[in-house]
């Protein structure tokens, strides 16, 4: 096993991307993720990669769009308000069937908000990606090691489904330091994808990268192809973890930093005599609907813990489908919940 290093979540995202084959980074500064572009600016040029600090988030996502069209493994990173600005570019990339990876180190909002941790970009991450009938494939790590691993894995996933992949984390995960095992850096594949544009490709039919299809039947065909890829992603990329009791009274659902907090909270609750099981979706889209539906049949209640006031709970409710009551424990605006508070709430509803 490689020696583990104590690094921040931001550094793990940056190094995870490079290790996964990313060689093109375009971004615009915003707290709490500035260590990612800083790291990229230091580490990409020496290995032949490209780092550009764009003039805005809008420019950054469109540089990613351009690079991705040529088959480059490109990424951008930002935090909540910056991700809002990138929505148009993401929609165009989905329409043009282009892969990229973006990381959102979410902060308190709405508006300019603050730089404290939040999960209030759940809808933005799982429903968003601008207008139209597309979404980002979205994954939510809950430790520094998992940020490193998931960001690296996101590049081949984005290529496979020709769709943007978002890694959704928050201000705590961005700035926290934990031991992280680093792998050797992989090179991106030398061969370009068959759909990539090249500028000078004598002898082969020209490729067109475009999201403008004025003929509705053609546009519908593009959409159906995208939806087919989402179904395949649901088959292959749905991920979650489970912790706690095998015969629970309460099912706790949480993702990202909230799930870390709930890991300890369900131990406190168990000490007070309330058996809980924690389901932590790692993939938010595709969502692990079936496992939550299964457990909902076997518990008295579901408690959803999120750093927002009822976004993630909607996907849980769709999965539970009325099988039992679903309650919310949320904080918002950059406030954290503590394991003690979650345990208290579990005991209250049990």
């Amino acid at each position: 096993m490689p020696e583990r290093q104590l690094i921040t979540g931001n550094e793990a995202a940056a190094e995870g991307a490079i290790a996964g084959g990313c060689r093109y980074f375009f971004g615009y500064p915003i707290t709490p993720q500035n260590r990612i572009p800083e790291y990229m600016s230091e580490h990409l040029p020496p290995i032949g990669g490209v780092y550009i600090q764009a003039e805005s988030e809008v420019a950054a996502i469109n540089m990613v769009y351009g690079a991705a069209a040529t088959g480059a493994w490109a990424m951008t990173t930002s935090s909540s308000p910056g991700i809002s600005l990138m929505q148009e570019g993401l929609s165009y990339m989905i329409g043009a069937e282009l892969p990229c990876v973006l990381v959102n180190m979410a902060r308190g909002g709405p508006g300019l908000g603050n730089i404290a941790p939040a999960q209030s970009d759940y809808w933005l991450a799982t429903r968003g990606a601008g207008h139209g009938d597309g979404r980002c494939l979205t994954f939510a790590p809950f430790s520094v090691q998992e940020i490193y691993d998931l960001v690296g894995q996101a590049f081949p996933i984005a290529q496979k489904y020709r769709n943007p992949v978002m890694i959704l984390a928050d201000a705590v995960l961005a700035s926290m330091r934990e031991p992280c095992a680093l792998r050797d850096r992989l090179d991106p594949p030398e061969e370009k994808p068959s759909w990539a544009v090249g500028g000078d490709q004598k002898g082969r039919q020209r490729n067109i990268v475009n999201s403008l299809w004025t003929d509705p039947p053609v546009m519908e065909e593009v959409n159906l192809r995208i939806q087919q890829r989402y179904r395949e992603a649901a088959q292959n990329e749905t991920r979650w973890t489970e912790h706690g009791a095998d015969d629970p009274e309460i099912l706790v659902c949480a993702y990202g930093i909230s799930a870390r907090i709930c890991q300890t909270a369900i131990e406190h609750a168990a000490e007070a005599g309330v058996a809980c099981r924690l389901i932590r979706p790692i993939s938010l889209f595709p969502f692990p609907t079936e496992v939550i539906a299964d457990w909902a049949q076997r518990v008295d209640k579901v408690l959803v813990v999120e750093l927002s006031m009822g976004q993630f709970i909607e996907d849980v409710r769709l999965a539970v489908a009325g099988a039992c009551p679903v309650e919310l424990f949320g904080r918002t605006g950059g406030m954290l919940v503590t394991p003690e508070e979650v345990a208290e709430r579990i005991i209250e509803i049990a």
Partner: peptide, 29 residues
């Protein structure tokens, strides 16, 4: 380990929380 601090370099408030365990750390908060 995670820090929470105000934007000032000096004179603001700074805090950090460190959880050390011989197994799984669980909640950093």
């Amino acid at each position: 380990w995670f820090p929470l601090y105000s934007p000032e370099v000096r004179g603001g408030r700074a805090t950090c929380t460190l959880v050390i365990a011989d197994g799984e750390v669980g909640s950093p908060v």
